[in-house]
């Protein structure tokens, strides 16, 4: 049997130290708990600028999609949201940099071996060139 109580002690001692920084990796549950409170609760008074934040329910759905399906969908080779800015939750620049480097290496390797080989991936050309779709 599992431990009947899960203690997720959080606030003053641990979270106070974070300051404004997201010191911990974004976690679904944790972020969900925070959003549930800061979005939906707290004192609501009119600010000078009308802010229409996403309705908590819609947001939950979006979060749910991101949190729930990232791992499984990645396994299945579906990763379109990584290019969809509204769904990409926290993709680090490092990752992008890595990918760029990997692509560059692949391109270089293939240029060396067999330039005419068809590739599965339609990759970004190293130099931007005008294309019809743009």
């Amino acid at each position: 049997m599992n431990e009947p109580v899960r203690w997720t002690g959080s606030m003053p001692s641990a979270q106070g130290r974070q300051g404004g920084q997201a010191a911990r990796a974004p976690q679904g549950t944790d972020l969900a708990d925070i959003l549930e409170r800061v979005l939906d609760k707290g004192i609501v008074i009119a600010g000078d600028i009308q802010i229409n934040l996403l309705d908590i329910e819609l947001l939950t759905i979006k979060l749910r999609l991101v949190v729930a399906s990232v791992d499984r969908a990645k396994e299945m080779g579906i990763d379109w949201w990584e290019r969809d800015p509204t769904l990409s939750a926290g993709r680090s620049e490092l990752e992008e940099e890595n990918e760029r480097l990997r692509e560059r290496i692949t391109a270089l390797e293939q240029a060396q071996t067999r330039p005419a080989r068809r590739r599965k991936k339609v990759e970004r050309a190293p130099e931007p060139e005008p294309e019809g779709e743009q």
Binding site: V38, D40, V44
Partner: peptide, 9 residues
């Protein structure tokens, strides 16, 4: 605590 995104000029 104020609700998220309460801003003034």
């Amino acid at each position: 605590p104020l609700s998220l995104a309460t801003v003034y000029l």
